Simulated assay, not measured.
Amino acid sequence: MKSFIKSLPLALGLCLVGFLGGTVAHSLHTPLPYMLGSLFFVALGTAVFPRLLPENYRFPEVFRSVFIATIGATIGAKITWDVVQNLPQVALSMLALTAFVPLSQLMNFQIFHRIGGYDRPTAFYAGAPGGLVEAIVAGESAGADVQVLAVQQFLRIIAVITLLPVGMSLVYGHPVGSSAGMSLNRSAVGITHIPEVIGAALLGLVIFRRLHVPAAQLIGPLICAAVLTLSGLAVIEAPQWLISGCQIVIGTSLGTRFAGMNLRRLVKATWLSLLSVGAMIAVGLAMALAIHPLTGQALDVLLISFSPGGVTEMALVALSLNANPAVVTLHHLYRIILTVVMLGFVGRRDWLTTPRP
């Protein structure tokens, strides 16, 4: 507790830097501006001023977990009865997604291990097509190079949520996603239901951590909010400023992971990420083309559903195309849960703990 209180002032100061970055990114209409803007500004600040952070600095995990939990609750609230009723229609695409996750994991492992030269734990967890936070935590305990792992996971998110909306904007001739000013809230949301949001977030966080569920800070609040929403016991609606604030804190915490990384390693991580993301999108497009005639779902919506980017941004892209963002969110939640389960199962195998070359 004392260490948390001691580290909190610096964390809040970094969040101010992140807020500035998010504001600049929002004014430039970039995808997922508050998360990516804060991440970029904090990462840049620690690169330009390496003494800004103490040696081996870690952003307060307890502080960050609360904001991750809030995001989880807002995502879970999107699982409504309308989404549940759509399950039969998305059964085939969900089945294809079940094949997409392990195929992407295997493909990424080969890219990072064979081509990139990363050791097995780092290559395996860097190649996870989802579960950013859980992949980093699990990779750290498995002996992976946490800095490289974190950068590769961040670059996966950045590459997908930047390149896909930009590419689709060029195809459609107009912006899509958050760059088009879209929000998951179709109408203005006040502060009325903030207690329910925070309550669902904290309840899910505490219960699922005690149950030792993987990615408890995200999955727990998500399931809790979904249950409360489906049962009608609570209305989980977070105002946009709260969601943006959570993204700033999360982006800031991720930005601190870039501290001390040299330019050569960053360049290598970037081209490996582009190779990995390009391969995953190609596989996703192939699967979308294969099942499109059978499902009746729009090809672009299927492509969004198979793109391993951020849940929020992918839902915003779907919203821009007048598609149901909850259906797209359902696919991405399933991808994340499936990835986390796979990481927990495969990560226990002895082959993954071999020493680095």
Rank of each mutant, 00 (worst) to 15 (best):
F124G: 12
A188K: 07
I158W: 04
V42N: 05
T192F: 11
I337S: 11
N185P: 03
Y172G: 00
F19V: 10
L343C: 12
F208Q: 14
S65I: 08
V151S: 01
S104E: 00
N324W: 03
F59T: 01
F258I: 06
A144R: 09
A11F: 06
P54T: 09
L242A: 03
L20R: 00
L164R: 00
A47N: 02
M287A: 06
V66M: 12
M280L: 08
L289F: 03
L299P: 04
Q85Y: 04
C246A: 15
G18Y: 04
W271L: 13
A91C: 01
S307E: 09
Q105G: 14
G251S: 14
G204M: 04
F100H: 08
N324K: 03
V90K: 00
L211D: 13
V160S: 02
G139T: 13
S179G: 15
E134K: 09
I79W: 06
T46F: 02
M107C: 06
T354P: 03
F154Y: 14
W81S: 03
L254R: 05
R58P: 07
F49V: 10
L211T: 13
L163N: 00
V133K: 07
V42R: 03
G177E: 11
A123I: 11
A315C: 13
V151K: 01
T80H: 08
R335S: 08
A326D: 08
T312F: 08
A238R: 01
S320I: 11
P54G: 09
R114T: 14
F258A: 11
R156E: 01
A47M: 04
E237A: 14
P60V: 01
F100E: 05
L275Q: 00
G76D: 01
I336H: 04
L149S: 10
V137Y: 02
V249A: 13
E61K: 10
F4Y: 08
V206F: 15
A135G: 11
G344L: 08
L275A: 06
G143A: 08
V101A: 10
P9T: 09
I68W: 10
F154M: 15
A200T: 02
F208E: 06
A315G: 15
M314D: 10
G190T: 11
T122D: 07
I250K: 09
A323L: 10
L230D: 09
T80K: 06
T229F: 14
F40T: 09
G177K: 10
T98M: 15
F4C: 04
G199N: 09
L321C: 06
A69K: 08
P60A: 04
N262C: 01
G251R: 14
L103S: 12
V166T: 11
L233I: 06
T312R: 07
R348S: 12
R209N: 10
A234N: 08
L289N: 04
F59R: 03
H29A: 15
M287P: 02
D82T: 02
L32D: 11
V235P: 06
I79Y: 13
C15E: 05
F345P: 02
F124P: 09
G260L: 03
G310C: 12
S320G: 14
A282H: 00
P9H: 06
Y34Q: 05
P221G: 07
L155S: 01
K6L: 04
H113M: 15
I304D: 04
E196H: 13
L233T: 14
S276T: 00
I304N: 09
G181Y: 12
S305H: 14
Q85A: 04
